[in-house]
Write a protein that binds this DNA or RNA. Structure first.
Lengths: 232, 232
DNA sequence: AAGTGGTCTAGACCACGTC
DNA sequence: ACGTGGTCTAGACCACTTT
């Protein structure tokens, strides 16, 4: 061999993208089968398959057995958002991180929260935390935790490690939901974030579960100016 | 063979997830090498490799040559957001979609927009569109398009197909940026969305490019109440 | 220098969905 | 029934990183 790995699944991916971009293969077109492409590119079908599977995951291509592979007629834009630990989010922006746990007690959650935990009339751990960057409010978090699903949390000390970080490190989860929205600051939220009541806040609501049992549900309030960014 | 495909990369993935969840493999632990796991599971190394690569993509596992594979000590939560065509977003929520193109003219964009297009003192196509659900404002969009990168757009008729949909269908892109934030409605935005001036709005800013040349940059304003949701 | 993941190959069988 | 993608295998070589 003179060259090493001349044809990789990455290079095939690039060629296909190029053909789409050049208009050689337009939206809706059925492209040749894996076997044909393997011959054309001088590689094994496995390699072509891998490239096409990746493109299918990204939504650029649609594949169905027997029908073949076609360029997605109206691709749905997808982006992967990374939700970092708050401490890292602050330090990545060049700030100095600190936090205060404002509330740490067992309490009866409101009905809306109870619904997410599929419990009724049962106390949960209530944790409200203010996260700061350079001693100014960065994010205010209201959290409920089912201690039965997070062993050790009742004894945890949140002086150095925030509840956010403690849970990420200690309690694995299998799935969850997340939502993003804009909201106006309630009196309580406004006070903690040091913004006027009614000011716009960026709200992230999140629930994590382990096999259908909710571990924690929380709301994170960011003051106006916070941006969540990503690549398409 | 009695059973078919007893050991798949999916089943291996499931086993590994189970071991993490059960605490058998805790955060930071180095797990056996691919070859060892292949022997244990009675399959080829290729299959184990595929399972582990997927877990690595999801951020649950970290892999480095020579070091091996370990459970990510503090996994970063990731979620894939799908940004649908506005029309589909509305109909998926059970509304009847319609739109009005309010502005459609060549104009000199503000400096902030010019910067994204790496142009100077050059006119671009300015398109402002109001999207409605059941005849009430759903989203207001301010868009700039470089006609040189979107051939045919100057002749396009946006009566039936909104600029959003036209571009998705006609102009492929190679990459882009997107950001989400909360903002307060300017007088203009407030008027279009029929909300009070200063009311919270959910703002999505987006730029798409083809090989480093910007095609379109836009801001989408959603009134309070809009939620973008996803699975973790 | 050596160990581990990253990838390719050639062949095989299977599952799905359309014809 | 048959064509296409989905996946596994067994072996091989390579690339990266640490020892």
């Amino acid at each position: 061999m003179i060259t090493k790995q001349a044809v990789t699944h990455q290079s095939i991916r690039a060629i296909i993208l190029d053909r789409i971009h050049k208009g050689e293969w337009t939206a809706g077109t059925y492209i040749p089968g894996e076997a044909d492409l393997a011959v054309e590119f001088g590689c094994s079908r496995t390699t072509v398959n891998r490239a096409l599977q990746q493109l299918a995951e990204e939504g650029l291509v649609e594949r169905r057995r027997k029908r073949g592979t076609r360029i997605t007629p109206m691709p749905v834009a997808k982006t992967t958002l990374e939700i970092p630990i708050i401490r890292k989010e602050v330090t990545a922006r060049g700030g100095t991180y600190s936090h205060h746990v404002l509330v740490n007690e067992m309490a009866l959650p409101p009905i809306s929260v109870q619904a997410q935990f599929t419990i009724s009339n049962q106390k949960l751990l209530h944790l409200n935390t203010l996260h700061l960057s350079d001693n100014t409010p960065f994010m205010y978090e209201e959290r409920w935790v089912n201690p039965a699903e997070a062993p050790g949390i009742l004894e945890a000390d949140f002086k150095d490690v925030s509840p956010n970080e403690w849970l990420v490190k200690e309690v694995p989860y299998s799935d969850g939901d997340i939502s993003f929205s804009a909201s106006s600051a309630s009196e309580r939220v406004a006070a903690h974030l040091e913004v006027p009541k009614g000011a716009p806040v960026f709200l992230i609501e999140r629930t994590t579960r382990m096999n259908d049992r909710a571990i924690t549900a929380l709301r994170m309030y960011y003051p106006e100016g916070f941006r969540m960014t990503s690549k398409l």
